[in-house]
């Protein structure tokens, strides 16, 4: 937690101590607390957690898209070593969509229905490719579309509803990657609304982009198979907090936090052996509920006793490569324990 950004020379995005509060029924409630993240060049970091755990909120906070009554606080959000908190509003607009872009979950609703695809592209080019001449826009758009596997000839004057979901998601990725300066792509469940074959294509496209342009990505998903396929590192969130950070192999081989284990346990095996699926009991706590101990304690299969209900666990270094977990159990054990309690 105390590592300076300079320690990782290739670190492109670093978020420290992020806290986001929303106004909810007149009160201010925390949606994200003490969130930290570090992404290196060319690295894909997965952000997983159940619905409502604050994943989208994290991305929006990083991009500076939340406005009052939402409140965002942090000890620093660094892009290439530059603290975004100190950047002017104008500069921030240049960074958004310029060096830091976002892809949304629902491609159909992410395009203005009243604008042609060509016009939505032209806008991004005029904002982020100042050196490009207007008359070259269409050629550039066709090139960008080609890059995501779409032949855009004759389609620039079409409206979003004239494309399929999969095409739109590709187009959105193309729009997000239009800026030549792009460093980090924030992808919020980019494949959730797609069917499996299209999902595979889009994931491959993202991987290619990483290879080609050395893009770093934060990939939000609640699908652990996407994580296994795509990510280098994983951050597991629960109720607005980070509960575990691990390299992707480590996470699947040796999940440390009981929440991660239970998540993994809930994935059906294939082929399915016919046994009943494991389902996590309970539900994510409400945002306005103040829990004195561990927020996961009521649903935890490895509950230790009073300590879990009374003392909030801290996110602690528990191994090499930034391995961390926020569980009292990890505090008790001195080293990484092997998965023993029958995950899978």
């Amino acid at each position: 937690m105390t590592v300076e950004p300079a320690a990782y020379s290739d670190e492109v995005l670093s978020v420290r101590g992020l806290g986001t509060r929303y106004a909810f029924q007149g009160a201010s409630v925390p949606a994200v607390r003490d969130f930290s993240l570090s992404v290196r060049e060319g690295e894909i970091v997965g952000l997983v957690g159940e619905s409502g755990s604050g994943k989208s909120t994290v991305l929006k906070s990083i991009l500076g898209m939340l406005k009052p009554p939402a409140e965002v606080t942090s000890d620093g959000i660094f892009l290439d070593g530059r603290d975004l908190r100190e950047v002017s509003a104008k500069e921030m607009r240049r960074i958004r969509g310029g060096r830091l872009a976002m892809v949304f979950q629902d491609p159909i609703n992410s395009f203005n229905p009243a604008w042609t695809i060509g016009n939505q592209f032209r806008r991004v080019l005029s904002l982020h490719c100042p050196h490009l001449h207007r008359r070259d826009y269409d050629a550039e758009i066709l090139r960008l579309l080609n890059r995501v596997g779409i032949d855009g000839r004759g389609k620039l004057n079409s409206y979003p509803f004239e494309f399929s979901q999969g095409q739109l998601q590709r187009i959105m990725i193309a729009v997000a990657c239009a800026s030549p300066d792009l460093r980090v792509l924030l992808a919020d469940e980019p494949t959730t609304s797609l069917d499996v074959t299209i999902e595979a294509q889009v994931l491959e496209l993202l991987r290619d982009l990483r290879e080609e342009r050395g893009l770093a990505m934060v990939l939000v998903t609640h699908d652990l198979s996407v994580v296994a396929e795509m990510c280098d590192k994983v951050v597991v969130m629960y109720a607005g907090r980070v509960v575990e950070v691990a390299e992707v192999h480590d996470l699947f081989e040796r999940p440390q936090h009981p929440y991660t284990r239970q998540l993994l346990k809930a994935i059906p095996d294939f082929p399915h052996d016919g046994r009943r699926l494991y389902a996590m009991r309970g539900a994510v706590p409400r945002l306005d509920e103040e829990v004195p101990g561990c927020t996961f304690a009521p649903r935890c299969d490895a509950h230790l006793g009073d300590v879990c209900d009374e003392v909030p666990p801290v996110l602690r270094e528990i191994g090499p490569d930034g391995r961390r977990s926020a569980c009292h159990k990890a505090n008790h054990a001195t080293s990484l324990e092997e998965t023993d309690d029958g995950v899978r």
């Binding site: 872009a101 949304f104 992410s110």
Partner: peptide, 12 residues
């Protein structure tokens, strides 16, 4: 709507 967020995320 998402497309408004998308426009914001684009730096508009």
């Amino acid at each position: 709507q998402d497309y408004i967020s998308a426009a914001r995320a684009m730096g508009v």
